[in-house]
Amino acid sequence: TPAEQLLSKCPWKEYKSDSGKPYYYNSQTKESRWAKPKELEDLEGYQNTIV
């Protein structure tokens, strides 16, 4: 779907730490963070409005 294509192009991906806590990693900037990036939230919100 178009929304899945947008998400696949987003540099932010969700991973799980050893303790199972989700964290987010940007493959372009090599940045990681615990809080979900706004860019990823926006894309997921867009995906939910299409489905």
Score class of each variant (00 low, 15 high):
residue 1 T to M: 04
residue 1 T to Y: 02
residue 2 P to K: 15
residue 2 P to Q: 12
residue 3 A to T: 13
residue 4 E to W: 05
residue 4 E to N: 15
residue 4 E to Y: 00
residue 4 E to T: 08
residue 5 Q to I: 05
residue 5 Q to L: 12
residue 5 Q to D: 12
residue 5 Q to T: 09
residue 5 Q to P: 05
residue 5 Q to C: 05
residue 6 L to T: 15
residue 6 L to I: 10
residue 7 L to G: 15
residue 7 L to P: 06
residue 7 L to K: 02
residue 7 L to N: 11
residue 8 S to G: 06
residue 8 S to W: 07
residue 8 S to F: 06
residue 8 S to N: 09
residue 9 K to N: 08
residue 9 K to V: 05
residue 9 K to R: 12
residue 9 K to L: 06
residue 9 K to G: 09
residue 9 K to T: 06
residue 10 C to N: 09
residue 10 C to Y: 08
residue 10 C to I: 11
residue 10 C to D: 11
residue 10 C to A: 06
residue 11 P to E: 00
residue 11 P to W: 05
residue 11 P to T: 12
residue 11 P to S: 09
residue 11 P to R: 05
residue 11 P to L: 07
residue 12 W to H: 09
residue 12 W to L: 02
residue 12 W to P: 09
residue 12 W to S: 07
residue 13 K to V: 10
residue 13 K to C: 03
residue 13 K to I: 07
residue 13 K to H: 11
residue 13 K to N: 10
residue 14 E to Y: 02
residue 14 E to N: 02
residue 15 Y to G: 07
residue 15 Y to W: 00
residue 15 Y to S: 02
residue 15 Y to R: 12
residue 15 Y to P: 00
residue 15 Y to F: 10
residue 16 K to T: 08
residue 16 K to H: 12
residue 17 S to D: 12
residue 17 S to E: 07
residue 17 S to R: 03
residue 18 D to E: 11
residue 18 D to M: 10
residue 19 S to V: 06
residue 19 S to W: 03
residue 19 S to M: 09
residue 19 S to R: 07
residue 19 S to G: 11
residue 19 S to E: 10
residue 19 S to P: 01
residue 20 G to D: 01
residue 20 G to S: 03
residue 20 G to H: 06
residue 20 G to M: 06
residue 20 G to P: 11
residue 21 K to N: 02
residue 21 K to L: 13
residue 21 K to P: 07
residue 21 K to S: 05
residue 21 K to C: 04
residue 22 P to N: 08
residue 22 P to D: 04
residue 22 P to M: 11
residue 23 Y to P: 02
residue 23 Y to N: 02
residue 23 Y to C: 05
residue 24 Y to F: 08
residue 24 Y to M: 01
residue 24 Y to C: 00
residue 24 Y to Q: 02
residue 25 Y to H: 11
residue 26 N to K: 04
residue 26 N to D: 02
residue 26 N to P: 01
residue 27 S to R: 04
residue 27 S to M: 15
residue 27 S to G: 04
residue 27 S to H: 01
residue 27 S to F: 05
residue 27 S to N: 10
residue 28 Q to I: 10
residue 28 Q to M: 13
residue 28 Q to S: 06
residue 29 T to S: 04
residue 29 T to E: 04
residue 30 K to N: 09
residue 30 K to Q: 09
residue 30 K to L: 06
residue 31 E to L: 01
residue 31 E to Q: 10
residue 31 E to W: 00
residue 32 S to K: 09
residue 32 S to T: 14
residue 32 S to L: 09
residue 32 S to Y: 12
residue 33 R to Y: 05
residue 33 R to T: 07
residue 34 W to C: 11
residue 34 W to E: 13
residue 34 W to S: 15
residue 34 W to P: 08
residue 34 W to H: 11
residue 35 A to H: 15
residue 35 A to S: 13
residue 35 A to Q: 13
residue 35 A to E: 14
residue 36 K to R: 11
residue 36 K to M: 12
residue 36 K to D: 05
residue 36 K to I: 01
residue 36 K to Y: 03
residue 36 K to G: 02
residue 36 K to N: 00
residue 36 K to V: 06
residue 37 P to T: 02
residue 37 P to E: 00
residue 37 P to Q: 08
residue 37 P to I: 01
residue 38 K to Y: 05
residue 38 K to F: 04
residue 38 K to P: 12
residue 39 E to M: 08
residue 39 E to G: 05
residue 40 L to G: 06
residue 40 L to H: 03
residue 40 L to P: 09
residue 40 L to V: 05
residue 40 L to C: 06
residue 41 E to T: 07
residue 41 E to H: 05
residue 41 E to P: 02
residue 41 E to D: 10
residue 42 D to W: 03
residue 42 D to H: 07
residue 42 D to P: 03
residue 42 D to A: 05
residue 42 D to T: 11
residue 43 L to G: 11
residue 43 L to V: 11
residue 43 L to K: 10
residue 43 L to Q: 11
residue 43 L to P: 07
residue 44 E to R: 08
residue 44 E to S: 07
residue 44 E to P: 08
residue 44 E to D: 14
residue 44 E to G: 10
residue 45 G to Y: 09
residue 45 G to D: 13
residue 46 Y to V: 14
residue 46 Y to G: 08
residue 46 Y to F: 07
residue 46 Y to I: 11
residue 47 Q to T: 04
residue 47 Q to L: 08
residue 47 Q to A: 08
residue 48 N to Y: 02
residue 48 N to I: 00
residue 48 N to R: 08
residue 49 T to A: 04
residue 49 T to S: 14
residue 49 T to C: 13
residue 49 T to E: 11
residue 50 I to Q: 12
residue 50 I to Y: 13
residue 50 I to E: 15
residue 50 I to R: 12
residue 50 I to A: 14
residue 51 V to G: 15
